[in-house]
Each structure stands twice: as structure tokens, then as C-alpha cells.
């Protein structure tokens, strides 16, 4: 049994078309993996910046995992939402990023996207806000179904993560 600590923060979002963003996150792990302590999912506060185009969250992540196999290495799945002035939240992006497999501290960029609708849907979205959302976001994890999606590029969410590994060398694993 080997252990992984993931400690860090969801740092900021950049290049999104609007500010007032918040982010839901969820740690995606394989069947071999178990959470020993820490929260596996969460949601950041709504944040906007008066200066520049980056939205800073600095939302802490601290998870302790144990595993009996390397398959299903943790990935962080995020959904970024925009909160408009009417208090409605619109989907601004999905993203999935693999947690680094080497110990140490890493800066990680997660490239997000959102479904790209038809001309009429985009027209409605432009004036009324909102937009398309995935009915079953699970299909992001299954690579087989993903290609049917049509999407557009949104912003980048950056993470600062420190990864600590324990006992992996006992199972003949080399990570750096």
C-alpha cells in the first residue's frame, strides 16, 4: 500500500471572457484508490479582480490518498462557472488535469473548454447568457464518448500543487 499527499491550491483563472468566476472541483481517482483524509471535492468562492484579467481564488486543497496500484492516478476535474449580476450561474468551462506523478511542487495549468452550440444557440447565449451544459459530465472521463462533443476553448485554471509520495519504492516504482 502506497500513499500520496496532494497539498496545494487552486490558484487562479485567466483568459476567461468575464470575471466573477467560481470553480467546482472534484478529485477523480481509480478503483484502487481510497481517500484517507481530506476533502475530495469542493467549490471555491466567487472572485473577481479589479486589476488585470486574472481571477484569483487561492483555494486550498489537501488530500491524503492510499492506493494499491498506479492505474487511475488522481486527476482533478473542474467546472468553472460565471455568476452574473442577476445571481445566475453559467457554465464557463470544464477541465481535467492529471496530478503530477513526481513528488515536489508543481504549477499546473488546466485548459478548460465548454460545449459549442449551434448558431442559434450561440445567438441566444450571446444575448441571454447561459449556454449548453453537459447532461452527463461523466463522459468527460470516458475517452471513448468524448469525440462526439463539439467544444470551444475557454480560459486556463492554474494550480499550485505539492505532491508527496510514500512507500512507492517498496513496490519497485521509479518516479523520477
Amino acid at each position: 500500500m502506497a500513499e500520496v499527499h496532494i497539498i496545494g491550491q487552486i490558484n487562479q483563472a485567466k483568459d476567461f471572457p468575464k470575471q466573477h468566476l467560481f470553480c467546482k472541483w472534484h478529485l477523480q481517482i481509480g478503483n484502487n484508490w481510497r481517500v484517507i483524509s481530506g476533502k475530495r471535492e469542493g467549490q471555491t468562492q466567487v472572485s473577481y479582480s479589479q486589476f488585470g484579467g486574472t481571477t484569483t481564488w487561492s483555494f486550498p486543497i489537501d488530500i491524503h490518498l492510499a492506493t494499491a496500484g498506479l492505474q487511475g492516478w488522481p486527476k482533478i476535474y473542474i467546472e468553472v462557472y460565471h455568476l452574473d449580476w442577476l445571481g445566475r450561474s453559467h457554465l464557463f468551462g470544464y477541465g481535467l488535469v492529471t496530478v503530477p506523478t513526481s513528488p515536489g511542487s508543481h504549477t499546473l495549468d488546466c485548459y478548460t473548454w465548454r460545449p459549442f452550440g449551434s448558431l442559434r444557440e450561440r445567438f441566444v447565449q450571446y444575448f441571454l447568457g447561459g449556454g449548453l451544459q453537459l447532461k452527463y459530465p461523466d463522459l468527460i472521463f470516458s475517452s471513448g464518448e468524448r469525440y462526439k462533443l463539439s467544444t470551444e476553448a475557454m480560459g486556463v485554471v492554474s494550480f499550485d500543487l505539492s505532491v508527496l509520495l510514500r512507500n512507492f519504492t517498496n513496490y519497485g516504482i521509479e518516479y523520477n
Binding site: 487511475g72 492516478w73 481535467l96 459549442f116 469525440y147 463539439s150 467544444t151 470551444e152 476553448a153
Partner: peptide, 25 residues
Amino acid sequence: QGRTRTCHAVNDENLLHFGHCSETV
């Protein structure tokens, strides 16, 4: 083998985001 979603380019640089993760042994 695999393939990503279709992505629509934005801005002057025709930027595309895939964020495609896969693993293999």
C-alpha cells in the same frame, strides 16, 4: 490510440483547448 473532442478555435491565435487525459501501461 485515441482522439480528442472537436474544439472551436478562439481569438487571433486560433487557440484550441483540449484538456484530454488518457493513461496507458
